[in-house]
């Protein structure tokens, strides 16, 4: 085979690999909404919600319970990623990267602030108060924030075609988001705290992606990602959970009750799906760029709706179907981008 053909083949392979990682991210991310929704009706979280609601009201109870769920989610994700790094023989690299705090690992810790207490907590709030399908689609707006930040901050190019694709995906997200809201406005009962959670998810993930890119430039994704979850565990288990316990919420008594088989199984399922959705997400960024990685990863919204329909039998509204179709269309606009445009992703 001649040089030119080999070059073309290699570039194609690289780009399709990037898109493949992003698609795997979408599937894992979509599946995550199953354990994420189920965990709310399992003890101790179900009981915890009831106990705190009696004394502090529904809204406070929801947020505090969501904190404990998110903290456990972070824990199982970190465990899943530790296993992953063990398999890849990357513990040495993990230590080396951790030591480079100022140039590198601080970005992962910073990313964990936006990813954990903003995005993931927000998602659990949306799942608990409105439902999995909503939580999934509400966050669909995050690539706007991610792409714009990446563009202004480190000059990542967004081609016209990618911009159109992102725009169509966003229109899809708005359709899904708006559909539910209009129905609820009509019924007179809008679960605002759930919508706030949805917005937190979108903003948090968009910012996280852009910040993480700063550290990922010079680190290995598997390692960077694990450090990002180490950071999130520190935030939950060393800062927020103890503070809530000191303030008087029964955090520890319910935390210890989480060690029962079914709850543990669901939490581990959440950890594995979420851990690997992140692995795939981060792996796609260096190959196809943060904006595109996030755009294709966005198909998770549709995946979540399909999985929720299959497992819970919830039939989505027509706005969800229309919005989902727009998301697929937008992703494919980005997917069919000419390989040549992708050869250099950033300005020099």
């Amino acid at each position: 085979m001649d040089l030119k053909a080999l070059k073309k083949q290699e570039s194609k392979r690289k780009i399709s690999k990037g898109y493949m990682w992003a698609l795997f991210c979408a599937v894992f991310w979509g599946i995550w909404y199953l354990p994420g929704t189920v965990v709310w009706v399992l003890n101790p979280f179900d009981e915890m919600y009831g106990v705190i609601a009696e004394t502090n009201g529904d809204a406070v109870s929801l947020v505090v319970t969501a904190v404990l769920i998110t903290a456990f989610n972070a824990l199982t994700v970190m465990l899943a990623l530790m296993v992953w790094n063990g398999v890849l023989q990357k513990f040495g690299e993990l230590g080396r990267t951790l030591k480079e705090f100022n140039p590198c690992s601080k970005w992962f810790f910073l990313a964990s602030i936006f990813g954990g207490p903003v995005a993931i907590l927000g998602s659990f709030m949306a799942m608990g108060f409105i439902g999995g399908a909503f939580a999934a689609v509400a966050a669909l707006l995050y690539p706007v924030i991610g792409s714009v930040l990446a563009y202004y901050w480190y000059g990542e190019k967004i081609t016209k075609r990618a911009a159109i694709g992102i725009l169509v995906i966003i229109l899809g997200g708005i359709t899904i988001f708006g559909g539910g809201l209009i129905t609820e406005l009509g019924a007179g009962e809008v679960p605002w705290i759930g919508y706030l959670g949805g917005l937190m998810a979108a903003a948090g993930w968009g910012i996280e992606g852009a910040i993480a890119g700063k550290g990922l430039d010079i680190a290995e994704p598997d390692v960077g990602l694990t450090l990002r979850f180490v950071g999130e565990n520190i935030i939950w288990w060393i800062l927020i959970v103890p503070i809530l316990a000191i303030v008087g919420f029964p955090m520890y008594s319910f935390a210890f009750q989480a060690f029962e088989p079914l709850t543990l199984l669901v939490l581990i399922f959440a950890g594995i799906t979420f851990g690997f959705c992140y692995v795939c997400w981060y792996k796609s960024f260096p190959l196809i760029g943060v904006g595109r990685g996030q755009g294709i990863g966005n198909l998770y919204g549709l995946c979540a709706i399909i999985f929720i329909f299959l497992f819970f039998g919830d039939v989505p509204q027509w706005t969800i179907l229309l919005g989902g179709a727009l998301c697929v269309a937008g992703s494919f606009i980005m997917f069919t981008e000419e390989a040549g445009e992708l050869e250099t992703l950033r300005g020099e």
Binding site: D2, L3, K14, I218, P286, T344, L345, E348
Partner: peptide, 19 residues
Amino acid sequence: FDIIELASGGMLKDVEQKV
């Protein structure tokens, strides 16, 4: 793959290829 990632991140430039 690390080198490929550095190149697609714009930190290295691919200047020559051979089979």
